[in-house]
């Protein structure tokens, strides 16, 4: 089972990377969504998946039972999900604004700050 998990998570990550390498802003954003989901799963899988009961302390006990799932990765992932959502939402707003002002959703058109191919607008004077 662990190998199936490993395969699935790595496949998701591979697709995420492939999409992030695109020059289309929305496809990059899809890549970010998939990659962050896969990263959450990676943490989840690393925390161990043997126990399946929720990490909730039963009414008659003071401590968590033996069969409960590992609470620590869950706490981490909960934070990560929300942060990931905030990131994607802000990036989506940026895409929208960029399209509104530049009229393109391709990164190779958005080169006002940095010209493609060469960082120099013209060759500087040579020394001497």
């Amino acid at each position: 089972m662990s190998l199936i998990y490993a395969f699935s998570v790595s496949a998701l990550m591979g697709v995420g990377i492939y999409l992030m390498l695109s020059r289309h802003l929305m496809r990059m954003l899809f890549g970010v969504v998939i990659l962050s989901t896969a990263a959450n799963l990676l943490i989840f899988v690393s925390g161990g998946l043997q126990a399946v009961a929720p990490p909730i302390i039963q009414g008659d006990m003071n401590i968590l039972g033996e069969t409960a799932a590992n609470p620590l990765p869950q706490a981490l992932i909960l934070t990560a999900i929300v942060i990931g959502f905030a990131l994607v939402a802000f990036a989506a707003a940026l895409v929208l604004k960029a399209y509104g002002t530049i009229g393109s959703v391709f990164t190779d058109d958005q080169n006002d700050a940095e010209r493609l191919g060469s960082p120099f607008y013209e060759e500087g004077p040579r020394n001497g």
Binding site: A6, F7, V9, G14, I17, Y18, L21, S46
Partner: peptide, 21 residues
């Protein structure tokens, strides 16, 4: 080329995750 790169990345993740246990 991107597919190859993504595949290589995925392979490393697979190896890492498969050996976590």
């Amino acid at each position: 080329r991107d597919a190859v790169l993504a595949l290589g990345f995925a392979l490393m993740i697979f190896v890492a995750l498969a050996s976590v246990g």
